[in-house]
Design a protein around this nucleic acid. Sequence first.
RNA 1: UGCGGGGUGGAGCAGUGGUAGCUCGUUGGGCUCAUAACCCAAAGGUCGGAGGUUCGAAUCCUCCCUCCGCUACCA
Length: 677
Amino acid sequence: MKKFKRYLVTSALPYANGPLHIGHLAGVYVPSDIYTRYLRMKGEDVISVCGSDEHGVPITLKARKEGVSPQEIVDRYHEINKKAFSDFGIAFDIYSRTSNKIHYETASEFFLNLYEKGEFTEKNSEQYYDEEAGCFLADRYIMGTCPHCGNENAYGDQCEKCGTSLSPSDLINPHSTISGSKPVLRETLHWYLPLDKYEPWLRKWILEEHREWKTNVYGQCKSWLDQGLQPRAVSRDLDWGVPVPVKNAKGKVLYVWFDAPIGYISATKELTPNWEKYWKDKDTRMIHFIGKDNIVFHCIIFPSMLNAEGTYILPDNVPANEFLNLEGEKISTSRNWAVWLHEYLEDFPGKQDVLRYSLCASAPETKDNDFTWKEFQARNNNELVAILGNFVNRTLVLTNNYYEGKVPSRGVTDKYDESVLKEIGKIRVNVETSIESFRFREALKEAMNLARLGNKYLADTEPWKVVKTDPERVKTIMNIALQITANLTIILEPFLPFSMEKLRGWLNTGKKQWSDAGQTDILLTGHMVNKPELLFDKIEDEAIDRQVAKLMASKKANEAASVITVPSKDPVSFDDFSKIDIRTATILEAEKVPRTTKLLKLKIDTGIDVRTIVSGIAEYYEPQAIIGKQISIVANLEPRKIKGIESKGMILMAEDKDGKLVLVSPSDKVSNGSMIK
RNA sequence: UGCGGGGUGGAGCAGUGGUAGCUCGUUGGGCUCAUAACCCAAAGGUCGGAGGUUCGAAUCCUCCCUCCGCUACCA
């Protein structure tokens, strides 16, 4: 493998329209932080850059909704997120933002450079335009009736009721959400990055030269490349963003995914005047830490931009993670299904490392993973407390009891002692190998093995027993136990920086280099250590129950808030109403329609006849349970074949806010066929 | 119905051709320095099923079963 002189670590710029949650941390920032801390301890020349991504339509939408400016929105979340990172010890060298002047300059220059080289293609296209508000409309700004389900509040890109993805021209009765007026199509000019042109180069660069990338990343790229790349617009009609720096570009800004990765460059510029060393020297190794939603931008688009520009280096690896679920469900900002970083610290003050540990141990490295509070508790109690904290405590308590805190000398060592000491070095190498291959779960497990080793050593040598017969031997044992403890402060430092700082305090030592790991005389004879406190404490069931209850509460609140009362429909005449034959009937038989999830085949007595109706209620009613039940039906609906079965009529049901269907029945028994009017 | 991802000891997972492994749990034992923590040992799996390729398959191929997500079926 190529030897690099320095490292440039980038972490996905969080979007400044909301606070950070555990998914962000687990997927991107904990791994990136571990990696960076490790490199720094090795004495490598490394910088880690990040910042807020502050442009794009969602931010303008949110601003409009709250009646404030986009700048106010991004200011708010920039501060919150910057603080969250610093609170959790995510040690970027700089946390910048894309609304900075330096970023505007950098992004403009970058665009202009490609523009002047003729890398872009220009194309006119038709976009929806709001004549009243005088602006073009992003898909999200257009609402109308969904052609599939009839929902009158479908967005131009997606109907949230039936989930179908749409384009604005699909909508019936489209209207602008800004002015309410009917949008018209209007021609607009945009600049495109011809990704199709770069395809051969990308194929070679990724598929041949970077086979070592993680399988999820490589596979994703391959599938994109195999599908064929299309030119992508790099500009938008919007007033929030970096203006397109050419003539005839009034009201146009750089599209957010074009300007965001350039944010890495501007952040580096802001950090150091030597920024070019990190971006333009082939001896720099650039690593992008991202989530899987970002793979295409960091593996295809941004590299294409950099390559087209020509003077920049390309990422050497893009260790993207998958997604973290929470208690079995997808994390969702809008549904408040998340553990927010700032709230976590209110509930668990000082327990940054516990979350870092737990998120790293179950990070979604190869596939989506689930975070549960129960597992979080188990990781803390069974691993951090029982294995790590306990070993440290045993060692320091014994040292204080026997030697008043003075490190005893190591006398004659036996074979077992030697093998334990040697094991420390092996563990260090294992941790290194794992971190350098971006396998952080494995690295952490291996690092914890050092604490396991310590516990085993004490159990095997039993100093509390031997002390009565052979005090000289105990000095050797405790010296070795202390050396293991000292090594822990090095090997676990990238993972648990807060706790290791504490531990160093008790050991009365300073920060060490990574190369010190494996050494067996870190604490010299006679060195004084302090009295320890508990490195971690147990998390009781109540604390966990409270968190789960909190989630359940937000789930409930959500449901309540999501009740959409459908406005009343247009009036109909009584004549029209009377055309519908609604009457009572009794269910005689019910069975599931095979190979469907929702359909029941019902035989019902309508008073006038016995007929078959197919109804989509199987998810809410067991066939057996509804036989004999009296219900209401539309008797004169034209028959329709559903799944090959002729359905004559329709069962009336009330649909609850969560989509649950409930049969509508007469409150007292009436004869079948009674008219409902 | 289509697409995608899974099915490995009680639970959660690792393991892409060569004697089936980890964490937790269970049971028994040891220890009592330590936050009832630690250490050792044992039990427990025909790696969803059937065929095939191979000297050899959890691992490759074919078919099937099953679970999950999206999709379809709800008039």
